[in-house]
Write a protein that binds this DNA or RNA. Structure first.
Length: 447
RNA sequence: GGGGAGAUACUCAAGCGGCCAACGAGGGCAGACUGUAAAUCUGCUGACCUAGUCUUCACAGGUUCGAAUCCUGUUCUCCCCA
């Protein structure tokens, strides 16, 4: 394993963190092949992680991998993000029980460009020796033909070996209702294995990282490198899959995935996602998704234990990650909006709002427009809530909500179904803020 | 092919001629308490002009003053035997 140091190796500057050690205490290390730690502490290493271009945005589920690359770079190593233009056309069977739909080339290209922009927010692409890079495996796969591939790659890996992978086994034996698997998907591990080989050979990449479900695919790569080129210096490292204390899937809410793209998931919703992390989960998250040091985290935890109600950990986590993804300004708006919607905001604070405040704070709140003429003569509240805005499904439902003290207008409880709404109720002469309970809002805009 | 059981609101599940808009549980929504949490407690959970009316118990007919409840047919589900 102790190879002579080739000239192109750059030794690792002393001030950097120990990558493996860093991942370990953060709970981000699942498995690593023997020898990797020694390599990583002795010199600068180039390593990569693949991203799947099925959507035009990365989601919080990908953040673990992004943070892994970030730690990798901070430890003085050179990170490469591989976006899977080619693998995206094939589909990774890992963790899936159904054959997946394939994407066409133009959509892939679009998705890939969007993801690239997001990665650039985390990684430093211009810091000399260990600048991050992005590669697209379509660039080398587009020149490979089928016969060439089965001769140059397929020849080195036995089907027995491929069948022994968990991701394949589960699909073959049909356990947990899994469907059969096409040859295309079966081949996936070879494609990903070849990526590693290609990068190892041409980009001096020694390490492939990924989620623990990628272990099988990654080791196919190290196997290929060993068989095809006798390379013993290819290593694998995986991070654990994030589990939530209640067993539900991380990265999703009832309303869907949490994305990094503000067009898909607004900064406010993004911020709220982290704020709402459970006490048990937040201790893991803050280690994984922020760069805070051990001392900072332990101090926050002490604070949290002393007064859990203040949710120091959730706030620190949400602020840190929202700032990194969406910037300082978006973070402040998200905090402000949270204060209004969940905090002690009353009608008095609402009255101080400018139109701009309304637009930014309520950007995420569902909105509805009504005609100004309606308010000239006054409109019955029940009529407004059902017929005009559809906020409630039936008149009876409104009455029940009012009897149960569950409806408010402009943050003030309203329980009289006979009430008429006029221009005097408007905020800033154009808004009405309706709410069911304390979390469900509708902003009505008069036009 | 033969025999049997069953289809009730979001889900499970009572009801077996009038007291049924239909017990109960879960879920959902809201209130109190809280930390925008958990646990707990309370109310609501077909529609409508809040007043009794109307439309609901697989579907279509029928018997009855009156049916989710009885009869006939249709569709579907499950079980047993071949």
């Amino acid at each position: 394993m102790c190879l002579p140091l080739p000239a192109e190796y750059v030794s690792l500057p002393a001030m950097h963190t120990n990558f493996i050690e860093e991942l370990r205490w953060r709970g981000m290390l699942h498995d690593v092949t023997p020898g990797a730690e020694q390599l990583l502490t002795s010199r600068m290493v180039t390593g990569y992680i693949g991203f799947d271009p099925t959507a035009d945005s990365l989601g919080v589920g990908n953040l673990v991998q992004i943070m892994t690359l970030l730690h990798f770079q901070q430890a003085g190593h050179k990170p490469i993000a591989l976006v899977g233009g080619a693998t995206g056309m094939v589909g990774d069977p890992s963790g899936k029980s159904q054959e997946r739909n394939l994407l066409d080339e133009s959509i892939l290209q679009h998705n890939l460009n969007c993801q690239r922009a997001q990665l650039e927010k985390f990684l430093d692409f211009n810091c000399g020796e260990n600048s991050a890079e992005i590669v697209n495996n379509y660039d080398w796969f587009k020149h490979i033909d089928f016969l060439g591939f089965i001769r140059d790659v397929g020849k080195y890996i036995t089907v027995n070996y491929m069948l022994s992978k968990d991701s394949v086994k589960r699909r073959i034996d049909g356990s947990d209702g899994a469907e059969g698997m096409s040859f295309t998907e079966f081949t996936y591990q070879l494609i990903q294995g070849y990526d590693f080989y290609h990068l190892w050979k041409n980009h001096n990449v020694k390490l492939q990282m990924g989620g623990s479900d990628q272990w099988g695919n990654i080791t196919t790569g190290t196997e290929l490198i060993r068989k095809k080129a006798g390379g013993e210096d290819a290593f694998a490292l995986t991070t654990p899959l994030i589990k939530k204390a209640d067993g539900t899937k991380f990265g999703k809410t009832e309303s869907g995935n949490i994305w990094l793209d503000p067009k898909r998931t607004s900064p406010y919703t993004f911020y709220q996602f982290w704020i709402n992390a459970g006490d048990d989960d937040v201790k893991n998250y803050i280690r994984i998704f922020t760069l805070k040091t051990r001392e900072e985290i332990e101090a926050l935890e002490a604070e949290h234990t002393q007064d859990p109600g203040r949710r120091a950990l959730q706030k620190a986590l949400a602020e840190d990650i929202t700032r990194r993804v969406h910037g300082e300004e978006a973070l402040q708006t998200a905090i402000e909006a949270s204060g209004i919607l969940f905090g002690k905001g009353t009608i008095d604070t609402l009255r101080k709002f400018s139109d701009d405040d309304f637009e930014s704070v309520f950007a995420d709140v569902p909105q509805k427009k009504i005609e100004a003429a309606l308010l000239e003569t006054g409109v019955n509240i029940v009529d407004l809530l059902v017929a005009q805005t559809g906020y409630y499904a039936s008149n009876g439902e409104v009455r029940r909500a009012m009897q149960g003290n569950g409806f408010s207008l402009n943050k003030e409880k309203l329980s009289d179904p006979a009430r008429h709404i006029t221009k005097d109720d408007l905020l800033n002469n154009r808004y009405l803020l309706l709410s069911k309970g304390k979390k469900d809002y509708l902003l009505v805009r008069v036009v």
